[in-house]
């Protein structure tokens, strides 16, 4: 059975103006659909990556997975437990201990007034666990020194801070780690160090990652399976080789063509046209139809279902 099973997940945010302004200006309520009917499974000990541009809903899905946001409809089952609807407190607690998160900005995600030791053992101490020597052991595992435990976060560089974040995420011995753009704030050579560390730790501790990124090259390197999001909808899902060699959805094709390539010297490609539409008023039918070169009448009226095509799952009327 899959470790994480996401079914028809939807999240709608109310972004209306305050009540009085709406009355005076005669404006209707504005609802922003950040995630719309997304379903996928994450197998144990694999890396599932979500890619998409800003506003595609990838971080919202990550937050719903760890329970920082409640789904509007649909469900997230982790080890068969739906955190949003489960009523048994002991069961919720048990599952929550298995989930940790690594954030994008290592400067904002560490408390500047706490020593590294306290930061790292906090997930364990909060549950009343034994913490003696834990921080020192974890620091060595992520490639820092045991004596760094007594320092403060400002004494470390960005890459070192992200290692501390990883050590903190490992402290409660989780099964699933949600990584939200873990290397976007880092330089290439530091990014390589952190990605290698994450791969090593995954093998060592048998971890499962949900890896959220906008960087296709990082995702290609890390993931066992990739889900491509557009305007809150899953448009394609496949393993990296299938996705990068034979992208099926026109949006995925556009995204891959637009990504800069190291051997693309003086490459002259027609850049993609248009921009991501307004998520408050998404276009009817397929969200990509205004920019899509293949769009037909059905694309403007009916939303395509995610269906299996070869090794991939694709949400497009025009693919067979």
């Amino acid at each position: 059975m899959a470790l994480v099973s996401v079914t028809n997940l939807t999240r709608i945010f109310d972004v209306s103006k305050p009540w009085l302004n709406r009355v005076i200006e005669r404006k209707p309520k504005a609802m922003l659909t950040a995630v719309s009917d997304v379903s996928f499974d994450i197998e144990e000990r694999t890396v599932y990556a979500l890619v998409g541009e800003s506003g595609s809903g990838k971080s919202t899905i990550g937050k719903m997975l760890v329970g920082l946001l409640a789904p509007s409809t649909g469900s997230v089952d982790i080890r068969g437990v739906d955190l949003a609807r489960e009523t048994d407190a002991a069961k919720i607690d048990d599952v929550r201990a298995d989930i940790q998160m690594i954030f994008q900005d290592p400067f904002a995600s560490l408390n500047p007034r706490w020593r590294v030791r306290d930061i790292i053992v906090e997930p364990v101490a909060a549950r009343g666990g034994e913490t003696r020597g834990l921080a020192e052991r974890l620091l060595e595992q992520v490639g820092l020194a045991a004596r760094d435990a007594g320092k403060f976060p400002h004494e470390f560089s960005g890459g070192q801070r992200q290692r501390i974040c990883i050590a903190r995420a490992l402290a409660s011995e989780p099964k699933l780690i949600v990584c939200d753009e873990p290397t976007s704030a880092l330089d290439v050579s530091v990014q390589a160090q952190v990605l290698n560390l994450m791969s090593d730790l995954k093998d060592e501790f048998g971890l499962t990652y949900l890896f959220i990124s906008h960087d296709l090259t990082v995702v290609q390197h890390m993931a066992d399976k990739i889900g491509v999001l557009y305007l809150g909808r899953l448009v394609e899902e496949a393993d990296p080789d299938t996705l990068f060699d034979t992208p099926k959805h026109p949006y995925t094709q556009m995204l891959l063509a637009a990504a800069p390539q190291l051997d693309g010297f003086g490459r002259e490609v027609a850049p993609p046209t248009g921009e991501i539409p307004d998520p408050i008023n998404p276009p009817p039918g397929c969200a990509y139809n205004p920019r899509c070169p293949l769009a037909a009448d059905i694309c403007r009226t009916t939303r395509p279902e995610l269906r299996r095509v070869g090794n991939a799952r694709v949400a497009c009327h025009m693919v067979d």
Binding site: E53, A257, A258, A259, A270, P271, P272, I276
Partner: peptide, 10 residues
Amino acid sequence: DVSVQAQIIA
């Protein structure tokens, strides 16, 4: 974003 980046570079 990647697609906008491609437009700006071009």
